[in-house]
């Protein structure tokens, strides 16, 4: 695979570190720091259908651009967010991380690297624990020598199931 000039010096290890740190920000509930990982044209997508080709014109659990991500975080900080009173605690496990050949889509802004991984998130709220399991893809761009997210796509194995309320990004 051709390595774009911008990604020189950024190898598998740096990508692995990046997706692990990204998950950790979610577990630490540092949501504004998490938001800052995305490029200005970045997006967070959790399809509601298996093998969904596009978020445009099909239902998704999440399809947030930066503005909507910001709205979502502001809501999570609101004192009257009933679905997070009390808040959840989460723990992510990220593994099987691989660098993939670039895949482009007409609606997807340009990216330099594509990283695939498996993720599990256990969420505990009140006395209940539930488990989310997914394959995820990070389309990454190098901005001023640092990795930023152009698109984070999370394909839950049960994406088309009937869920109780989901308040936190996976």
């Amino acid at each position: 695979m051709d390595v774009p000039a911008a990604t020189r010096g950024i190898g598998r290890e740096a990508c692995e570190r990046f997706v692990i740190d990204e998950a950790r920000l979610l577990d630490d509930r540092r949501l504004r720091d998490w938001l800052a990982l995305f490029t200005d044209d970045g997006a967070y997508w959790v399809p509601a259908e298996p093998n969904q080709p596009t978020p445009h014109g099909r239902v998704s659990l999440f399809y947030d651009d930066r503005e909507l991500m910001g709205n979502r975080i502001e809501r999570l900080e609101h004192p009257l967010i009933h679905v997070q009173t009390p808040p959840s605690r989460t723990v992510h496990l990220v593994g099987s991380i691989t660098l993939e050949p670039m895949r482009t889509e007409p609606w997807l802004p340009a990216a330099d690297l594509l990283v695939q991984s498996s993720v599990m998130m256990a969420e505990c709220r009140l006395d209940a624990q539930r488990l989310f399991a997914a394959r995820q893809w990070h389309w990454l761009r190098v901005v001023d020598g640092r990795l930023r997210i152009v698109l984070k796509r999370v394909d839950l194995v049960d994406c088309d199931a009937a869920f109780e309320a989901i308040a936190l990004p996976i």
Binding site: G57, S60, L68, I81, F163, A165, I166
Partner: peptide
């Protein structure tokens, strides 16, 4: 198409399990 794409996208935000609006109703019902 843009009108329909926008409505579909709005429903993600208002009535999906992970939406801003419906999730608080789900909590209220429980």
């Amino acid at each position: 198409e843009a009108i329909n794409v926008r409505n579909t996208r709005l429903l993600n935000v208002t009535h999906a399990a992970a939406s801003f609006v419906q999730s608080d109703d789900i909590e209220a019902f429980a």
